[in-house]
Design a protein around this nucleic acid. Sequence first.
DNA 1: GCCCAGGAGAAGG
DNA 2: CCTTCTCATGGG
Length: 284
Amino acid sequence: MLIFSEVQDFHPEHVFDCGQCFRWNRQEDGSYIGVAYGKIAHADYDPQSLLLRLEGTSVPTDEDLWKNYFDLNRDYGEIKSHLTKDDEIMAEALRWSHGMRILNQDPWETLISFILSQNNNITRIKKCVESLCSSFGPTIGEYRGETYYGFPEPESLAVLTEEDLAHCKLGYRAKYILGTAAAVADDGKRTLNSIAQSSAEEAHEYLQSLCGVGPKVANCISLFSMGKTASFPLDVWIKRVMNQLYGIAEGDTKAMNAYAQKHFGEYGGIAQQYLFHYIRQIDR
DNA sequence: GCCCAGGAGAAGG
DNA sequence: CCTTCTCATGGG
């Protein structure tokens, strides 16, 4: 059990149900159970303290790893005051998403998950990812009567055929998964794990060379698993925000990116996540 | 039956 | 460079 005390700017629903991750599920008591870095994790938050129970086989409670996973080294209060300066829209958005934090997830898992996200909805993305894990990932243990599976390694996916993947119902994205798994397995994850230290431009160049990865997915990967906080993923929801709330012409993606760069700057991705969670809450 | 979902790739200007 | 079409799948 890990206990992080005096954690500010954290709300489980904002963190786990904002669309950045697909393997955390809300429990009746408001806590969340998920799988990350090959561990079954049970997270709970009582104002100020984040409690993390880690289950499964060998459980090294690597405090620094999980502290970084939840991005607890970053001062979100300062970022929020910066973003809300002269921005009433952001101030309103934060009433709905003030406890969101950008998780620092595993690059490989994030890569595959967001290839599956294209032209798809979050409920079904979660089913696709879970199906991949239970079919081709390692069994990592049982917790409260449920069996949990880790994310399959590139080598485990690279040897498959489209027929092997058919029951996962990935649609046309199956061949993207196979292509990208082959490329990453061939490279031994080396480039993928090292470009987090490179510039955002270099990271995007490599990511977009992979099958099924375009500008939007590359931005999600670099934001959610490589610490590139300026990355600004432009999806259908954010295009809606930029048009309807910020008044930018519908479809003018260049102007939307330029606005983000100018007004949100190095925290474009964090701003984007606040707005994403906000528009999805009020649009239902 | 239609439209939509955290889009990308291919084809054609 | 840009625009348009197509690509599985499931839910509303």
